[in-house]
């Protein structure tokens, strides 16, 4: 099933939660809506599910106007951040709920419902918990039950709102991989909301980066990481070093001193230079266009992370760099720095 969202506007008072959002989700995709809190991602998801209504715009599910139907008629599976399991029902009854509330004409008989619930509990590998109550389960188990419950109605699309947000780090990582393999198995068009870039990059086929009610970029995990379209995306996805620079006539200056890098077509004026931590090359003093004193070095795994205080310019600018461990850096050492890969965005972004 495809989902199409056209010119969606949603205001809460004077605050624009969604500002003219357009989005198309293809059949069988696993799409991530990624953004900081307040970026409108959850609101967008709730509008698609029918739990919120837009002030303007269209939502088409499989080409059909979804806004003409209420949430209960959209046949959309929704998984909540805090699970929202029915606390007074057993796990079994939770999963069976969607089948039991069907109109009498299409409701399955008890044996079919039991078989279907069993099948779903097997799918989420929790059939041994069917007589327990939600309060007796761990967070990870609850979320898997919530997912089984949403799948019970054979939803046309599956929407997950921060599905792993309330779980601890280890469980979250396990569930991520599990969700991806589950999606490979059942292939239902899915959208999940997250503020965790790692989660989005690791699980989704495509990532939609949102900020302040607008879509900043849509692309594969590789695209949004390697070719961020805006300063926001560069800053939000992956760690970046950001330096205020001036661009004029193809040359880039930091605090008046020219940097030995090309402007790459950036417009003249005040700009921001974005460099990934590992894209800043460290060399002996005098070999690059930036210079600074190493203040502190921490080494772990394959890299060493150095805090470098840049010399020159106004005030003290301290940046963090990831360098390979082929040459151990010392605190107090003067090094030169040269951006290997970088992007320049206008400063007002």
């Amino acid at each position: 099933m495809t989902i199409e969202v056209k010119n969606i506007v949603k205001k809460f008072g004077s605050f624009a939660a969604l500002d003219n959002v357009d989005l198309k989700v293809d059949q069988g995709e696993l799409l991530a809506l990624l953004g900081p809190s307040g970026s409108g991602k959850t609101t967008l998801l709730r509008i698609i599910a029918g739990l919120d209504w837009p002030d303007a715009g269209e939502v088409l599910i499989d080409g059909e106007n979804a806004l003409a139907r209420g949430a209960s008629e959209r046949h959309v599976g929704f998984v909540f951040q805090h699970y929202a399991l029915f606390r007074h029902m057993t796990v079994f009854e939770n999963v069976a709920f969607g089948l039991r509330v069907q109109p009498r004409a299409i409701r399955k008989d008890e044996a079919t419902i039991r078989a279907r619930v069993k099948e779903l509990l097997d799918l989420v590998q929790l059939d041994w918990l069917s007589d327990r109550y939600p309060s007796q389960l761990s967070g990870g188990q609850r979320q898997r039950i919530a997912l089984a419950r949403a799948l019970a109605i054979e939803p046309r699309i599956l929407l997950l709102d921060e599905p792993f947000g309330a779980l601890d780090a280890k469980v979250r990582k396990e569930l991520r991989q599990w969700l991806r393999s589950l999606h490979n198995e059942i292939h239902v068009t899915s959208i999940f909301v997250t503020h965790d870039q790692e989660e989005a990059l690791e699980v989704a086929n495509r990532v939609v980066v949102m900020d302040k009610g607008r879509i900043e970029q849509i692309g594969s995990p590789g695209e949004v990481y390697d070719n961020p379209a805006t300063a926001f995306v560069h800053g939000f996805i992956g760690e970046s070093i950001v330096l205020p620079v001036d661009v004029s006539g193809g040359s880039v200056r930091l605090g008046g001193r020219p940097l030995n890098i090309a402007a790459n077509g950036a417009a003249s004026g005040a700009s921001k230079l974005f460099v990934r931590r590992h894209d800043m090359q460290i060399g002996p003093a005098g070999s690059g266009s930036l210079e600074g004193a190493v203040r502190h070095v921490r080494s772990f795994g394959p890299i060493q992370r150095a805090e470098v205080a840049l010399s020159g310019g106004e005030g003290k600018t301290i940046i963090e760099i990831d360098a390979p461990r082929d040459r151990e850096l010392q605190a107090g050492e003067i090094v030169s720095l040269q951006p290997r890969r970088y992007r320049i965005f206008a400063a007002h972004d």
Binding site: A49, G50, L51, G70, A71, S72, E73, R74, H75, V76, G77, F78, F80, A84, L85, F86, R87, F97, G98, V101, Q102, A146, R149, A150, A152, I153
Partner: peptide, 10 residues
């Protein structure tokens, strides 16, 4: 929980 119920078709 009410939202979950409604999204399940109740």
């Amino acid at each position: 929980e009410e939202e979950a119920a409604i999204s399940l078709g109740a």
